[in-house]
Design a protein around this nucleic acid. Structure first.
Length: 925
RNA sequence: GGGCGAGUAGCUCAGUUGGUUAGAGCGCCUGCCUUACACGCAGGAAGUCGGGGGUUCGAGUCCCUCCUCGCCCACCA
C-alpha cells in the first residue's frame, strides 16, 4: 500500500499516458486475463464460464475506430462478467484474410515492378508468411493500448497449424457427409483478383447503365425482318447460343424453332421458348449466353445448348472454350468494357442497333477490390447449405440463440430460408489448400485429412487441387477451432464451448455469424453462442462510414495518446444506443472525446479530494455503522448507490439464458451499455460529487466520530462507484482504487479488475424517508441558488436566509450549515414571516424561505416576471380542471389515472397559493 | 422489385403496455478561477415530436397515407 505522502502527492492533473501502460502490464503479470479450464464449472470447477470469441481482425489490419468500438464493447462485457465472478475468457485472434492479404503482397510486388507469376507459388507464399510474421498481430498489440483484457495466451490465427487441422477436418467431414461437391456452373468471377467469389462476396451496387436494343435478323425471312433483343451487356453477345421468348407470347410464338443470325459473330442460333422470359420486360426477347450469365446457364442446361466462353479470366475477349471463331480477331485481347463500346459502334454502323435506353440496375462488385465481377462458367467446390441451415434456423426460432437488436433476427431468418450453396474454392495462392488430390493415371480423386503422396488405388503420382479455400471456411470454425476442435478431448473445448456472446457488426452476419452457427451445429451439435449482439458502424458527422481511403477516419491510438484509453472507451460506450451507429467528428477530436476525458478528470479529482482529506488510514466498514451514526446524507447516498447498482444491472441484463433457451420476457433485454454508462456517470457526478461529497467537507473538517462515519461512507461509495465504472474505464478506476483506504475488516483484493461486482447493500434504514429528507435539503439549497441567480446577487454578497418550517424544522436546523455553505448564505431557521421586499420560496413540504432583498435588486422587474408566471399557472390549472370535469375522461379513463389527475390538481392549487404568496412578498400589497 | 430501420431542442440521441407541463449530453446565453476539479461550479434560453388524415375523453406513442434519409436482400436480360 502506498504511504500517506504518496497519496497526497497525486498529481493535480490526471495523465493517462503516464499510467495506462504500467497498469496494463501489472494486469498481465498477475495473469488476471488468463482463464483456467479447471475452474470452469463444466470441468468440475466452481465458476460459471463466460466466453467471448473475438471477431478476428485481418492479420494485416491496423487498428481503426471500428475495431475500437467492437473490442471496447467486448471488453466491457468480459470485464463485467469477470468481476461478477465468472471464469471469463476472451479469445483473441487474427484472420489470414485470403484475398485481402494476397492483394497486399501483389501490390508490393507491383511496386517492385514484378508480379506473382515472376515469383511462383512457393516463393509467393513464403513471402506472404514472412510479411505476416513481421507485421501480423500488430493490431492485437494495439488492442492492448485500449485495455482489451483478452487471454493472450490463447491468441489464435486462422492459418496456424493447429487451426488448419480443423479446416481439413471440416472439409473432409462435410465431404464424407455428402455436403461438399464439385460443381460446374456460372459463378461470380473477379477479373482483377482472378478468383471466383461467393454470392456474399459479390456486392450489389445500384448503377445507371444502358439497355441496348439489338436486331438479330431472322434467317430466311423477307424484308430483313429481325428479332430485337434487349441487353445491358452487348459484349457477351458473342457467346449467345439462342434467343428465347416466352412460350405464350403471341408476338413471337410462330418464330419458335426458327433461327436468327447473331451479328458480328455471324453464326446461326435458334429461337427457343422458355418460361424464364418475362414478356413485359424489354422487347420480350432474351439473348441466351449460358457461359456468362447464371440464368442463361440454367436455360442452356434445360435446352442442352452449347456454352461458349468468350472471355479470358482477366476480362478480355477471347475464344476460350467451345467458342470457335465467334470473337473476331479485332476484338481479341480487348477489355470487356472497351469491347462493349466497340461492339455497340459496329452494330450502330450496320444499323443493327435499334435504340439505347437508360436503365437502372444492380451490378455486382468484388468486395475486396470493387471490380465489376464477371459471371463465368467454371468448376468450383461448393458446400450444400440447406441441411446445415436447418438447425441454425431452428436455434433462432426457438430462442436458443437471440440476435440483438431484435430486427436482425428477421434478416437472418430470411437469408437462411433462401440460402444457396456456398462456393468455397478460390483461385488464390494464399489460403488453406483444398485437401483433394487427383491421380491422373487412374483418374481418381482423393479427399484426405493428411497429405497424400501417392494414389491409394494405383500408386500413381498425385497432384493436389490448386485452389485454396474461402477465408470464411476457416473463420466459420473459429469458436470451436480456437478451443481445440477437432480434438474432442480438449479441456478448453469442454470448459468453454458453447461460448456466450458474439459481438460484431451487421455486415458480417451472413459471411461469418450465420455460418459459425451452422458450423457449431454441424461439428459440435450445439449452438456456438446464445447471444449475437450487432453494434452499429462508426461514422463521421455527415453519417459517412469512417474509412482510411475516404480520409475521414480517426486513429484510436491518437485518441489514446491525447485523451486516454478510458476517454475513448467511455465515448464509444456512452454514445452508442443499442445497434445504433456512432457518430464521431474526425475534424474535431475535442468535441468527440472531451466528455470522456472530462469525466475521467472528475473521477480523478474526487479521488484527490478523498485521499487528501481522508488519508490512507483504514476506514470503518459501512456494515458496522449503526443507524444512529449515519446522517441523512449518508443514508441518502447509500440508498442512491443501491438504486444505481440496480439500474446498471438492469441495463446489462441477464448474462445467459436460464435453461438454455431465452424466455420471451428476457429475450430482448440487456446489453444496453449506454444506459449502464449513463446511470453510473449520473450517480458519480450528479449525486456523489455534486452533493454527497460537499456535505462531507464540514463533517470531516470537524473531526471526531462523525468524521469517521463520513470517511467510511464516502470511501465505500466511491469504491463501489469505481467498481461499477471499471468495465468502461478500467485504467483510471484501477489507479484510484489501488490507493483507496480499505475498511479495517476487509481483505484487500489485489486488483479492481477482479474485485467483486457490487451488490446492493441491504439497508435496515428507511431509505425512502432518507431520500425524501435529503431531497428537501437539496431543494432548499436550490431555492436559494435560484433566488441568487434571479436577482443577480454576486457571490461575494452574503445574504441572510430565513427558513420557516413547522414540520421539518429539526431537519433544516440540523442541515443549515450545509445549506449555508452550498448556497453561500447565512441561514437562520424559524425566521421571520415573509414581508414586502423579500424574495420568497416555498418548498414542496410547505417550508418557506425568505431572503430580504432590501437594496440589492430591482423589485419592479421581478414582480412582472412573477405575475406572468402566475398567469401561466392559472391557465394550466384551468385546463386541468376542465379535464376533470369532462365526463368522458372521468368515466372512461382508468381510475388510477383519474386519481393521479385529482392529486395533481391539488398540488397545483397548492403551488398557486405559494406563488401568489411569493408575488405578495415581492410586490407587496 | 421485396423487406427493415430512422425522421423528437442547433448537433447526437432517450422517451416503457396511449395518460395530459416531452428528457439527457454537447453546443449556446448569464454569472462565478467558492481551499477536489475552469477538463470546473451555479443559473438559463431553446422543440407546431417529418407532412396530412383517422381511432380515442386523451396520441411523440396506435391505424392509414404521403415525403425524406439510411440499411439489408434480389437471377427481369
Amino acid at each position: 500500500m502506498p504511504s500517506t505522502d504518496e497519496l497526497r502527492d497525486l498529481p493535480a492533473q490526471y495523465n493517462p499516458a503516464d499510467t495506462e501502460r504500467a497498469i496494463y502490464q501489472r494486469w498481465l503479470d498477475a495473469g488476471i486475463f488468463a482463464a483456467d479450464e479447471k475452474r470452469s464449472s463444466r470441468n468440475g470447477g466452481d465458476r460459471t464460464p463466460f466466453v467471448i470469441v473475438m471477431p478476428p481482425p485481418n492479420v494485416t489490419a491496423v487498428l481503426h475506430m471500428g475495431h475500437g468500438l467492437n473490442n471496447t464493447v467486448q471488453d466491457v462485457i468480459v470485464r463485467w462478467r469477470r468481476m461478477v465472478g465468472d471464469e471469463a475468457l476472451w479469445v483473441p485472434g487474427t484472420d489470414h484474410a485470403g484475398i485481402a492479404t494476397q492483394n497486399i503482397i501483389e501490390k508490393q510486388l507491383a511496386a517492385e515492378g514484378r508480379n506473382k507469376a515472376d515469383l511462383g507459388r512457393e516463393k509467393f507464399v513464403e513471402r506472404t508468411i514472412a510479411f505476416v510474421e513481421e507485421t501480423g498481430g500488430e493490431i492485437l498489440r494495439q488492442l492492448r493500448a485500449i485495455g482489451a483484457s483478452a487471454d493472450w495466451n490463447r491468441t489464435a490465427y486462422t492459418f496456424s497449424p493447429e487451426l488448419s487441422i480443423g479446416v481439413r477436418e471440416a472439409f473432409v467431414q462435410l465431404y464424407e457427409r455428402g455436403l461438399i461437391y464439385r460443381g460446374h456452373r456460372v459463378i461470380h468471377w473477379c477479373p482483377r483478383c482472378l478468383t471466383s467469389l461467393s454470392d456474399e462476396e459479390a456486392e450489389h451496387d445500384e448503377e445507371t447503365g444502358s439497355l441496348y436494343h439489338i436486331a438479330y435478323p431472322i434467317v430466311g425471312a423477307k424484308n430483313n425482318a429481325a428479332l430485337t433483343v434487349a441487353t445491358t451487356r452487348p459484349e457477351t453477345m458473342l457467346g449467345d447460343v439462342a434467343v428465347a421468348v416466352h412460350p405464350d407470347d403471341d408476338r413471337y410464338k410462330q418464330l419458335i424453332g426458327n433461327s436468327v443470325m447473331l451479328p458480328i459473330a455471324d453464326v446461326e442460333i435458334p429461337v427457343i421458348a422458355d418460361e424464364y422470359v418475362d414478356p413485359s420486360f424489354g422487347t420480350g426477347v432474351v439473348k441466351i449466353t449460358p457461359a456468362h450469365d447464371p440464368n442463361d446457364f440454367e436455360v442452356g442446361k434445360r435446352h442442352s445448348l452449347a456454352m461458349p466462353v468468350v472471355m479470358s479470366p482477366d476480362g478480355t475477349m477471347a475464344n476460350v472454350t467451345d467458342a470457335g471463331q465467334r470473337v473476331p480477331p479485332e476484338l481479341i485481347g480487348i477489355d470487356r468494357f472497351e469491347a462493349r463500346v466497340r461492339i455497340v459502334r459496329t452494330l450502330e454502323k450496320s444499323k443493327r442497333l435499334i435504340k439505347v435506353e437508360s436503365h437502372q440496375h444492380a451490378v455486382r462488385h468484388c468486395y475486396r477490390c470493387d471490380t465489376v465481377v464477371e459471371p463465368r462458367l467454371s468448376d468450383q467446390w461448393f458446400v450444400k447449405m440447406e441441411p446445415l441451415a436447418k438447425p441454425a434456423l431452428k436455434a433462432v426460432r426457438d430462442g436458443t440463440i437471440r440476435i440483438l437488436p431484435e430486427r436482425w433476427e428477421a434478416v437472418y431468418i430470411n437469408w437462411l430460408e433462401n440460402i444457396r450453396d456456398w462456393n468455397i474454392s478460390r483461385q488464390l495462392w494464399w489460403g488453406h489448400r483444398i485437401p483433394v488430390w487427383y491421380c491422373d493415371r487412374c483418374n481418381c480423386q482423393i479427399v484426405s485429412r493428411t497429405d497424400v503422396s501417392a494414389c491409394e488405388k494405383c500408386g500413381g503420382e498425385v497432384r493436389q487441387d490448386d485452389d485454396v479455400l474461402d477465408t470464411w471456411f476457416s473463420s466459420w470454425l473459429f469458436p470451436i477451432s480456437t478451443l481445440g476442435w477437432p480434438d474432442k478431448s480438449s479441456a478448453a473445448l469442454a470448459a468453454f464451448y458453447p461460448t456466450d456472446d458474439l459481438i460484431t457488426a451487421p455486415e458480417i452476419l451472413f459471411f461469418w455469424v450465420a455460418r459459425m452457427i451452422m458450423a457449431g451445429f454441424a461439428f459440435m451439435d450445439a449452438a456456438p453462442f446464445h447471444t449475437v449482439y450487432l453494434h452499429g458502424t462508426v461514422r463521421d458527422m455527415n453519417h459517412v462510414k469512417m474509412s482510411k481511403s475516404l480520409g475521414n477516419g480517426i486513429d484510436p491510438l491518437d485518441v489514446v495518446h491525447s485523451y486516454g484509453a478510458d476517454a475513448l472507451r467511455y465515448t464509444v460506450i456512452a454514445g452508442m444506443g443499442m445497434g445504433a451507429d456512432l457518430m464521431l467528428d474526425p475534424k474535431d477530436l475535442e468535441r468527440s472525446f472531451s466528455p470522456g476525458r472530462n469525466f475521467a478528470t472528475k473521477l480523478w479529482n474526487i479521488g484527490r479530494f478523498l485521499l487528501s482529506n481522508i488519508g490512507s488510514e483504514a476506514v470503518r466498514s459501512v456494515d458496522e455503522l449503526s443507524d444512529k451514526e449515519l446522517t441523512l446524507p449518508d443514508r441518502w447516498i447509500l440508498a442512491r448507490l443501491n438504486t444505481t447498482i440496480l439500474e446498471c444491472d438492469t441495463a446489462l441484463g441477464p448474462a445467459r439464458p436460464e435453461k438454455g433457451k431465452w424466455r420471451p420476457a428476457e429475450r430482448y433485454i440487456g446489453l444496453r451499455l449506454s444506459e449502464y454508462a449513463e446511470s453510473a456517470r449520473r450517480f458519480v457526478w450528479n449525486e456523489l460529487a455534486d452533493w454527497y461529497l460537499e456535505t462531507t467537507k464540514t463533517r470531516i473538517a470537524g473531526g471526531g466520530d462523525d468524521a469517521q462515519v463520513a470517511r467510511a461512507v464516502l470511501t465505500h461509495t466511491f469504491d463501489y462507484a469505481l467498481r461499477l465504472l471499471h468495465p468502461i474505464m478500467p485504467f483510471i478506476t484501477e489507479t484510484l482504487w489501488q490507493r483507496l483506504p480499505v475498511p479495517v475488516t476487509a481483505e484487500r483484493c489485489e486488483f479492481l479488475a477482479i474485485a467483486p461486482w457490487p451488490i446492493p447493500t441491504p439497508l435496515s434504514r428507511d431509505d425512502k424517508e432518507a431520500v425524501a429528507g435529503f431531497d428537501l435539503v437539496r431543494e432548499a439549497i436550490g431555492a436559494v441558488r435560484q433566488i441568487r441567480s434571479d436577482y443577480s446577487i454576486a457571490p461575494a454578497t452574503s445574504i441572510d436566509v430565513s427558513i420557516r418550517s413547522s414540520r421539518n424544522g429539526k431537519l433544516f436546523a440540523e442541515h443549515s450549515p450545509v445549506i449555508g455553505r452550498l448556497s453561500r448564505s447565512v441561514v437562520r431557521v424559524d425566521g421571520q414571516s415573509p414581508s414586502a421586499g423579500a424574495a420568497h420560496a416555498v418548498l414542496t413540504d410547505g417550508t418557506e424561505l425568505i431572503v430580504p432583498l432590501g437594496g440589492i435588486v430591482d423589485l419592479k422587474k421581478e414582480c412582472g416576471k412573477l405575475r406572468a408566471e402566475l398567469e401561466q399557472l392559472d391557465k394550466q390549472l384551468d385546463s386541468l380542471s376542465n379535464r376533470l370535469e369532462n365526463e368522458g375522461f372521468t368515466s372512461r379513463a382508468p381510475a388510477h389515472v383519474v386519481e393521479a389527475e385529482r392529486k395533481k390538481k391539488e398540488e397545483w392549487i397548492k403551488r398557486r397559493e405559494q406563488l401568489s404568496a411569493k408575488v405578495k412578498a415581492v410586490c407587496g400589497g
